[in-house]
């Protein structure tokens, strides 16, 4: 399992890795630091194995660092990290985006990678009653970049090579041009991956895009979505400092109208606080002098 964070998001990285390790302490959890450590924390004391940028051994990272702002750079590194994990000799790897909570064992889904090269998860598994919300998803990409799996096959490596190539200069937000960070490119997995698995698990990638349609229930420690085990809850755009809103990307959902899902947000916030959010969120981004001029 692997994830990516800058220092200021280290608490998010800690939470996603710890929550994964609750289910599978034996599976290595890697965090790529899209930043430099600068003595702010001790990697040896973290619930993940830290991967430094230099360890990726990828050419051209300096240029990317200069080209992109923190968010773009962090997202653009996704295929580089997946590729790196496979090169460590792993047969399969799951990438989970930083702002996530593993609420149930995700590995049964990852088993799809025994027969497939790449695993993706759609934002939606059924139409919404709103064409406007569907259009927004078309602009962002139909597959969610928060949960991507790869097996060590030539098919997957070819896809990763291409995705890395695109990430060198085309990880921006520009929906009219067909761009939405790293995620929109994933739509082409249908074209370029011969053995693509589309995970249809209602417990995956539960987030603002499919709420409140997916019915969340909380039974003690267990979280269910549409009656099935919720494995991965996503907090895309959630800000611990504005806990009344579900996401900064839309005003549609808030803690008042989320129903039982609000409890999951509340628990997530608690975990973030225990993981040091208040401290880490103030840490600087080492490459702030770079970044794209908008």
């Amino acid at each position: 399992m692997c994830t990516i964070a800058a220092k200021r998001h280290l608490a998010l990285g800690r939470v996603v890795c710890s929550s994964f390790r609750r289910h599978h302490p034996e599976i290595p959890a890697y965090l790529l630091l899209a930043d430099s450590e600068d003595g702010y924390f001790d990697p040896a004391a973290e619930p993940f194995q830290m991967v430094a940028l230099e360890e990726l051994g990828a050419a051209g990272l300096d240029r990317m660092r200069n080209r992109y702002n923190q968010q773009e750079f962090s997202y653009a590194l996704t295929p580089f990290l997946i590729d790196w994990v496979l090169r460590q000799g792993m047969e399969r790897v799951l990438f989970i985006k930083q702002e996530s909570l593993v609420t149930g064992d995700p590995t049964p889904v990852a088993d799809l990678l025994r027969k497939a090269s790449v695993l993706v998860t759609p934002h939606l598994l059924a139409p919404l009653h709103s064409a406007a919300r569907e259009k927004q998803i078309l602009q962002c990409g139909t597959f969610n970049g928060g949960f991507v799996g790869c097996a060590n096959t030539p098919d997957a490596r070819r896809f990763l090579d291409w995705w890395q190539d695109r990430m060198r200069a085309h990880c921006h937000y520009d929906p009219a041009a067909g761009l939405h960070f790293e995620q929109r490119w994933l739509d082409l997995a249908s074209s370029y991956v011969e053995r693509l698995a589309v995970a249809r698990d209602l417990g995956l990638n539960v987030g603002h895009w499919n709420l409140p349609e997916r019915a969340v229930t909380v039974e003690g420690e267990r979280i269910l979505t549409d009656g099935q085990l919720c494995r991965l809850f996503r907090f895309s755009g959630y800000e611990a400092d504005h806990p009344e809103a579900a996401t900064r990307y839309s005003t549609r959902l808030n803690m008042e109208n989320l129903g039982p899902a609000a409890e999951v947000f509340r628990r997530y916030r608690e975990e973030l606080m225990s993981a040091g959010w208040e401290e880490t969120s103030g840490w600087p981004y080492a490459f702030d002098s770079g970044g794209r001029k908008e």
Partner: peptide
Amino acid sequence: DFAPSFVP
């Protein structure tokens, strides 16, 4: 583009 999402 929604076909992979909606059509198993």
